[in-house]
Design a protein around this nucleic acid. Structure first.
Lengths: 445, 445
DNA sequence: ACAGTTTCCCGTAAATGC
DNA sequence: TGCATTTACGGGAAACTG
């Protein structure tokens, strides 16, 4: 009897889908107060059982970790323990869809001493779905459990939570289920971790990490001769994962196309960038993710041999906020560098190793006022933004008298003025203001 | 007895404060599910009454409109009818602070036929605070009412709701309280309305509207010989108020300083702009709010006599999104116009009537890479954005062969390329790419 | 004081109702 | 079907709480 019960129990399968899907998909990460859907499927496809099974969701049923681990939080389904009968569907199987589940914390006093407590994103919980099974005189309880989930209360915790889910799943192939895993988290081999990381990029950007990108990440993450990665290195504050997560989000929001096509080398160290570029022709550039910006940012580096010496420069990384105004291809198209005493020019000509810029990015250029002005709407003069750099940085100007025109103004001397700009930058500024002021003065003067 | 009761009743005063205060302050606009605080003050400052009065909040008490007006919604305080005793405070008076009030709708079937129903932002509700008063053998109920409030369920309704509050308050000085006011809303005189409008700008931007600004608004709003403004004109869809609200928000978020100092003329018609500018010297400009953008946008118009003819141009209005990347003073400082066959120049020299640009905006310029590059951080080349216009719009180029270099690319012919840009714009493009391509080719070629 | 965690709530998008 | 209104919830920031 008990044997049969166990058999039937394993026949229940749990699938969790988020209800909405705006930002990064993070199945098995549940936010309190946010709805999600779980579908329970009865694998033994016996139509006779229809309406015989009443399934009830129970959160953290029989989880002894709940008591053993200090400060372990307690939750319950806030949409009541609404039982749902099994139903037959299109697929032909027996399923129950719990479409309005959501979690709320059950506050308990005495969270335990805060020392040695797991972070909330390291707590693993499970959802069980139990049913009473009666058939041919048999009466037993069967149940199915979800994979471990992480419960968060704020979106800002999703990245760390997802790290836990990944870590657990990498280990669970070899270990029995252990919800206290992060009390003493085992390390992962680089081989295991690199694969999960690559999958993240596949799922977000439709392209995996290539060998070189993985090598760069390996250098950043693995400092162990045995090729092991430790949980704290990966996921604790200022960790690699948070940095990678920012990049995934950056790709998802602004760079999917470029990433999918492999136009973004992305994970290249500064040193390697130099090595790669310096033997290429002037104007060769590549795209790299910022290694310091925690929120995801991207820069381009280019090589310049024109002065006789070889220089490799990188522009200050572009952030999500800036990319929301202007796409990276447009930035690349219009980027303009003002080097000392030469005309402004775009230093970006060939995407590494030698692809003509337009061949790589041409299809993503926007029709802008700069390129092909759209109709002037309502009589307005069209406009656009041009990304420029002044480089090398001019030396700080000596203290000078500011030669403001003799007009009554109450300006402070140390305020910036167009006048100052002109004096500071000389000919570059001529590009942006009338060559001679006088041509713009009141004709009557 | 009853007389005394009424007397005491009028001694209760209600004050409502929002709990948080991020976006525009809209007292008397309540969003369901959002906390707010009401302070009830007992004007008769008799310490002997301390702890004698138990005040209870009741929503829409004795409001007959609730039944009379079709589809009138019902609400209740969701934080229970938690009674709070009166307490003595620093001010010395008797007050009760209800700090955790919030509203939730009580759904009723039969909303009434949707025809002739008020919009939700036109429903006026009140909160009453009632207390049982017992003293010296006297036993009576006293109550105090709030001003009418508007209950919304989404922030997007706040602007319309605030319009109702303003309209009611302008009328209530002359009329008895009428919660069904918007069933047949009386018009307002322009004199009344203009004053409220001006106050909005005072409260958001620390400066009222001046006479000319009001005149422009009057032309836009008043089409009645009697100087009356009708509610529908003011507040219905595509209304003036929504447009003004967008501008208030624009000021609050990005233009407070400029508005406070009166540097933004803002409300000027296109015609008047032309009239004002055409008799000023070339380079004179003024700032105007977009009349078409519903979300608040600002443009500058300038005059140019340099060709012999007088031209007044306006740039495509800048939106909040763009101002979040670059401040208006910086845009004004760096704005660059590429007119036909002349060097790029900044056409903005004097703020109307004749204030040197830097005198007006100098103190708000940002130290940017363009003006005074900050230190190169982490070896990155600094960068900034320059707002440019190409004007007049060049005629559409005739169909031409695109002379791409003989490199293997799989570009479509109708994609934009740097090459095309160069052909289209000739010399302007020289400013942004190497003057001769060859100087940038691989030295070995 | 502080850091980890939760709550608050705007603003947008989607869902719902009529 | 379209419009008016509500609900959902990400994201940033404040509030909480040991």
């Amino acid at each position: 009897l008990s044997l049969l019960a166990k058999l039937v129990a394993s026949a229940l399968v749990v699938e969790k889908q988020p209800v909405t899907s705006s930002s990064l998909q993070r199945p098995l990460v549940l936010k309190t107060g946010v709805r999600f859907t779980v579908t329970v499927r009865f694998l033994a496809n016996l139509p006779e059982f229809k309406c015989l099974l009443k399934v009830q969701p129970v959160f953290d049923k029989d989880v002894e970790e709940a008591k053993a681990v200090k400060g372990f939080r307690h939750f319950d389904f806030s949409t009541g323990d609404c039982k749902v009968l099994d139903v037959d569907t299109a697929g032909g199987g027996l399923v129950a869809e719990f479409g309005h589940l959501s979690l709320k914390e059950i506050k308990t006093r005495s969270k335990g001493s805060s020392e040695n407590r797991l972070g909330v994103t390291e707590e693993l919980h499970i959802m069980k779905f139990v049913a009473r099974f009666r058939y041919a005189g048999l009466d037993c309880n069967i149940e199915a459990s979800s994979l471990p989930v992480v419960v968060i209360s704020s979106t800002s915790q999703a990245a760390s939570a997802w790290a836990s889910v990944m870590w657990f799943n990498m280990l669970s192939t070899s270990e029995p289920r252990n919800l206290s895993l992060f009390v003493d988290p085992p390390p992962l081999t680089w081989r295991q971790l690199s694969q999960v990381l690559s999958w993240q990029f596949l799922s977000v950007g439709q392209r995996e990490l290539d060998e070189n990108q993985l090598l760069m990440l390996r250098d950043k993450i693995v400092d162990d001769p045995d090729d092991l990665v430790h949980w704290s290195k990966f996921s604790k504050n200022e960790s690699v994962w948070i940095w990678i997560e920012g990049i995934l989000d950056l790709i998802k929001k602004y760079l999917v196309d470029l990433w999918r096509e492999g136009l973004i080398m992305g994970f290249v160290s500064r040193t390697r960038t130099r090595t790669l570029l310096q033997e290429k022709q002037t104007g060769t550039f590549l795209l790299r993710f910022s290694e310091s910006n925690r929120d995801g940012a991207i820069t381009f580096s280019w090589v310049d041999h024109s002065s006789g010496e070889t220089h490799v420069h990188s522009v200050e990384p572009y952030t999500k906020q800036e990319l929301s105004i202007m796409s990276l291809p447009d930035i690349i198209l219009h980027y303009s560098l003002r080097a000392q005493r030469t005309m402004p020019r775009n230093p970006l000509l060939y995407l590494y190793p030698d692809i003509l810029k337009d061949a790589a990015f041409g299809r993503y250029y926007t029709i802008s006022a700069m390129s092909a002005p759209k109709k002037v709407v309502d009589g307005y003069v069209n406009r656009t933004l041009i990304p420029v750099s002044v480089y090398p940085t001019p030396p700080p100007s000596p203290q000078r008298e500011i030669q403001t025109m003799d007009v009554d103004t109450d300006m402070d001397k140390d305020l910036i003025t167009s006048q100052m700009l002109q004096e500071l930058f000389g000919d570059i500024f001529d590009l942006w203001t009338p060559t001679t002021q006088s041509s713009y003065m009141d004709p009557s003067s």
